[in-house]
Design a protein around this nucleic acid. Structure first.
Length: 824
DNA sequence: ACCTACCGGGG
DNA sequence: GTGTACGGTAGGT
């Protein structure tokens, strides 16, 4: 009895049932209930391209491998006509009994002389399904089939047919959470030893804090429980009753969920929160991640850092900084160092920590809501679940977008490079973008031009791709680009695969930008929300299009082509030179240029003259290429920029007409730096950005340096923290922290991997290791002021001051001491 | 100049 | 997962 359900998939996996793979799609039906849609009608396969004129179908069909309690066999084969890098090929589609048979069989037949190549044997089965069945997470699907009885937390529907509709799940149920752990400071975080003491949740109209010590409070959403076991059970129960589509945390891949898992194992609690009753799983050793069947686990920290990190003008990705930037809200100010003491003896102080914990969940929730449009659009464009999108870098996003498109274009995907190919590719470097080194200094009346999406538009306009490069049909007729050592041309008869994708992405983006314009004009009730989604969509399309160039030159790429990457930068240099030449011919002074932008001073000319120049250049540009007027700045300061294969990093500061300061190009300070270094950088940035007072910032930095020299800085501020990663004896290079660890061990302290070592660099002529002392061993005024000035304070602020036109020497000069109170 | 070890986020 | 997958810096040699 067939019926239909309307269903938004969120997550997917597969299981083997009766020797067959069954896809499980987890998600929400349009009536709001959670269901699992199972589909057993999809077969695993890969492609074999035989050598010319050989038919090996029958031979392939007989392949059968008996492994340890598993049988891998070829179920059937089908001859297909496909395209491979633009050329038509005959291929055999080899279907296997189960997904894991694919790599096994591929390995078993790889030595056959009759095989030319094999492809797509490493596409995960679930991704294969989403691509081939045109199933897109977060998009509504109409499923025909029937509900079946199967042991599960939620109803199970067996699909016979699955069809995508146009609607999107714009408001998935999001639940944010955060834990606080018992953790004496200056000790490594240790889930083996220290319990979780608080747990908070935040969702729409939902807030909760669990804590297992009692104190007086009037806050209703605090719930007291017995112990840590109860707390972990509450974690499970809350998720099971709230039924979120998305569970989100801040660095929850790296901290909260692994910590919960370790504690749950210690306490013998199964964290079986998966909709299929499976436990949450910890994956990969390098970069940890945690998945839950049926619930999209979103580590919003990871997403923000990866996807919008470069466009965020922040010096740190901690929750406080990111929330301030994106939400205009900060974390609660409490001293976490005091939490353990409060837990042990001062329970009446716990209330503020509960509020703190809840507020972190609140901020995390709002960050997730804020990023949701971008996440949804990425999911829809790349066609993978939230969980995967969250954890993929740009090259992966490009690759999987391209994999999906390859299927639609009947293209067979090239293989990933072998280890030795990767080594080869890594050696291939090439000339990057053109950077016009500015003369450091202050300039006035600056106009900035830049090419709209320079590399993608070059790629599209010149038809650059692995399938169009140096084609026989256009040799001698197509325009040649010379990268300085090699000459390349691209087919002018047939559109390439990647240029087609790029042009599609760019034109879709242009259409959406038009819609954004008209949306702005009419202001309906949901105009704001609609605008956010359109804007996220155009931005996602832009990010993806911009990543193709880097992808072509990325050593791990399937569609790798260093020649294409070279051609793109060569064209880029040629176009930017044209702009510079035209501007100079018209009498503008070019002060700086980097990759796709040109900064020039008006020198008595008007902004209209600058706009006219752009107009005349645009008339000459091919295809989608366009030079834009980025803006006008009354003043700015420039320093030189470093060259790199993927474009130079910008280092400059400018003041906009509104008075906003734009600073680019300085790095962050980490925990293995002294407090004094962190303090100085934070305060300098604060003074410059908030008070717009560079003089004051300089005076402050000098004051700190002078205080170090005169030893007025207390020793606590010059302690450096470094964590020991392995046993002392295993160190080939013994750095300062290892030397100090050795001394601690000699004193009889237990020292091992994970121990946090604190040390101070003292005066003397020896190498740093031999001058590193335990803080207890160091009296006031014994630290090496010059070390802290030159290796800690100066490096953190030098770049910033360079950008503002000052030198290291300006910071170091001792005369005219400024009086600034209140920094210590 | 090259190599080794460390950080990030979280408490 | 039909997996192989950081990137930048300081200190030591």
């Amino acid at each position: 009895m067939a019926e239909t359900v309307q269903f938004y998939p969120l997550d997917a996996n597969y299981k083997i049932q009766d020797g067959k793979a069954v896809i499980n799609l987890f998600g929400r039906a349009s009536d709001g209930s959670q269901i699992i849609v199972v589909d057993g009608n999809f077969e695993p396969y890969f492609y074999v391209i035989p050598k010319d004129g050989v038919d090996i179908s029958e031979k392939l069909e007989k392949v059968r491998i008996e492994g340890n309690n598993e049988v891998y066999s070829v179920a059937r084969t089908a001859p297909v006509i496909k395209k491979f890098l633009g050329k038509e090929v005959f291929a055999i589609k080899v279907y296997t009994n189960i997904p894991s048979a694919v790599p096994a069989i591929k390995d078993a037949v790889k030595e056959w002389g009759s095989i030319s190549s094999m492809h797509e044997y490493d596409v995960p089965f679930v991704r294969r399904y989403l691509i081939d069945r045109n199933a897109t997470p977060l998009v509504l699907h109409q499923i025909t089939g029937e509900f079946i009885s199967q042991k599960s937390k939620v109803p199970v529907f067996r699909a016979e047919k699955i069809e995508q509709s146009a609607e999107t799940l714009h408001s998935p149920k999001i639940l944010a959470f955060d834990i606080e752990t018992y953790s004496p400071f200056d000790m490594a975080i240790d889930p083996e030893r220290n319990p979780i003491i608080m747990l908070s949740f935040y969702g729409e109209n939902f807030r909760k804090v669990f804590v297992w010590k009692k104190f007086k409070t009037g806050i209703g959403h605090v719930e007291f429980i017995e112990d840590e076991s109860q707390l972990i059970k509450k974690f499970k129960e809350t998720i099971e009753s709230y039924k979120p589509d998305i569970l989100t945390g801040y660095f929850s891949d790296g901290f909260d969920l692994p910590y919960l898992k370790t504690r749950a194992e210690k306490l013998n609690i199964r964290l079986d929160i998966g909709l299929d009753n499976s436990e949450m799983r910890l994956k990969s050793k390098m970069e940890t991640s945690v998945s839950i069947s049926g619930i999209a686990h979103l580590d919003i920290f990871k997403f923000i850092k990866k996807v919008i990190g470069s466009s965020l003008e922040t010096y740190s990705y901690d929750l406080d900084t990111v929330a301030s930037q994106l939400l205009g809200e900060k974390k609660h100010e409490v001293s976490l160092a005091e939490l353990s003491a409060a837990w042990d003896s001062k329970n009446d102080e716990l209330e503020k920590f509960c509020e703190y914990c809840l507020h972190d969940s609140y901020l995390t929730y709002n960050l997730a809501v804020k990023m949701l449009p971008t996440i949804i659009e990425m999911v829809k464009i790349v066609n993978l679940p939230v969980y995967d999108i969250n954890r993929m870098g740009f090259s992966q996003l490009v690759e999987w977008y391209t994999m999906k498109q390859a299927y639609l274009f009947n293209e067979i995907a090239p293989n990933k490079p072998s280890y030795s190919e990767v080594q080869q590719r890594r050696l291939n470097t090439y000339q990057g973008a053109f950077v016009y080194e500015p003369k450091p200094g202050l300039y006035k009346d600056i106009a900035v031009f830049d090419f709209r999406s320079l590399y993608p538009t070059i790629l599209g306009s010149h038809n650059i791709g692995p399938d169009t490069i140096n084609c026989v049909c256009c040799e001698g007729t197509s325009q040649i680009i010379d990268d300085g050592s090699e000459k390349y041309w691209f087919c002018s008869k047939k559109r390439g695969f990647i240029p087609t994708l790029i042009e599609d992405l760019i034109s879709r983006r242009i259409r959406i930008k038009e819609m954004v314009k008209t949306e702005k004009a009419d202001s309906g009730r949901h105009a704001g929300e609609k605008h956010a989604f359109l804007d996220a969509r155009q931005n996602s399309l832009k990010l993806l299009a911009n990543s193709f160039y880097g992808y072509l030159g990325f050593f791990g790429a399937r569609w790798y082509s260093i020649e294409c990457a070279r051609s793109i930068t060569a064209w880029g240099r040629s176009y930017i030179h044209k702009v510079i030449d035209s501007a100079q011919k018209e009498g503008f002074m070019v002060i700086y240029s980097d990759t796709d932008s040109v900064f020039l001073t008006l020198d008595g000319k008007t902004k209209e003259d600058a706009l006219d120049l752009i107009g005349s250049i645009n008339k000459e540009l091919p295809g989608l290429m366009e030079l834009e007027y980025e803006g006008f700045y009354p003043a700015g300061i420039f320093v030189s920029a470093k060259l790199g294969p993927f474009g130079a990093k910008k280092k400059y500061a400018m003041i906009s007409e509104k008075g906003d300061l734009k600073i680019k190009g300085f790095e962050t300070v980490r925990r293995n730096w002294s407090f004094i270094a962190k303090d100085v950088q934070e305060n300098v940035i604060g003074i410059i950005l908030r008070e717009n007072d560079t003089q004051k910032a300089l005076a402050y930095a000098k004051e700190v340096i002078n205080s170090l020299r005169s030893k007025k800085v207390p020793v606590e501020k010059v302690i450096i923290h470094t964590q020991l990663q392995k046993e002392i004896v295993d160190y080939a290079n013994k750095g300062p922290h290892v030397a100090v660890a050795q001394r601690l061990k000699n004193k009889g302290r237990s020292i091992g991997p994970g121990t946090m070592i604190r040390y101070i660099v003292t005066q003397g002529d020896d190498i740093i290791r031999n001058r590193a002392r335990l803080p207890e061993e160091v009296k006031e005024r014994e630290y090496d002021a010059e070390y802290y000035i030159n290796h800690q304070v100066i490096p953190t602020v030098e770049r910033i001051f360079n950008v503002l036109g000052y030198r290291k020497e300006d910071l170091l000069e001792t005369k005219e001491q400024t009086k600034l109170e209140g920094f210590f």
